[in-house]
Amino acid sequence: MRVATGGPGKAAEFWARRGTIVLGGLTVASLAVLVVLGLFVSDPDYQQGDAVRLMYLHVPAAWIAYLAYGVTSLASALYLWKRTRSPAWDTLAGASAEIGVLFTGLTLVLGSLWGRPVWNVWWAWDARVVSTAVLFFLYLGYLALRRVPADPAVRARRSAIAALAAFVDVPVVHFSVEWWRTLHQKGSVFNRELNPTIQGNLAWALLSGVFAFTCLYLYLLERRYQLAVMEEAIEERALEAAIAERRAEADVPPVRVPS
């Protein structure tokens, strides 16, 4: 099985047995805290009123998109580097990217739902919004590319290169509000001055959102990775079975399939 061939497999195996359970519990608990802080404890914003409660999901979702694509890039680089090459890195890259696409999509939809009441438009053709939409389609395309059948090594290699190329858009998205004039506001936490401009219980709600979504990401990543490993094992077995069948048809005694 691919998971046992080194790379992140062994470490993941050790931590995840207990980790999944702890992480799952932590995720559910922190999401519950987020609901309480975000919908009930947090005051409405002095300008935006209750609409600010959409920020507690929109900003963490965008953070998870960055994080997920960061993990995808790191895993892709580790796959491309000969000394650390392992099919498991490729599996991890794909698993993380899928979660990234989910959260990029959420970021866009939540941003739209937030933009309508506070900007007065659902969509703005500004650098932040458009570069985020570009990010969504870049990694959706990456997921499609991963599914184009090919030799596993060829597929992993080209996926890794595509993932690293797509990652160029992440800093563009992040700095778009500094580099260009946008309707979108600048960063309120990781801004140029590193001076958070969010105060009081609003800051706690946002922080709890970031924490809860980070736990959720790690939980989903572990689950998605496990699923990918199993599906790859099924594919491998199907392949072996097909080969065995062909050999039987050809009246040749079954031979171990070279891997």
């Binding site: 209750d50 959409l54 999901l57 959420l106 739902l113 989903l220």
Partner: peptide
């Protein structure tokens, strides 16, 4: 739609998306 409508819509959608993926 009121602000509350957008907020409830956004939070519900997020919940459905996460639950759906899990």
């Amino acid at each position: 739609m009121t602000d509350a409508g957008y907020v409830i819509g956004g939070w519900t959608l997020t919940g459905v998306a996460i639950a759906g993926y899990v």
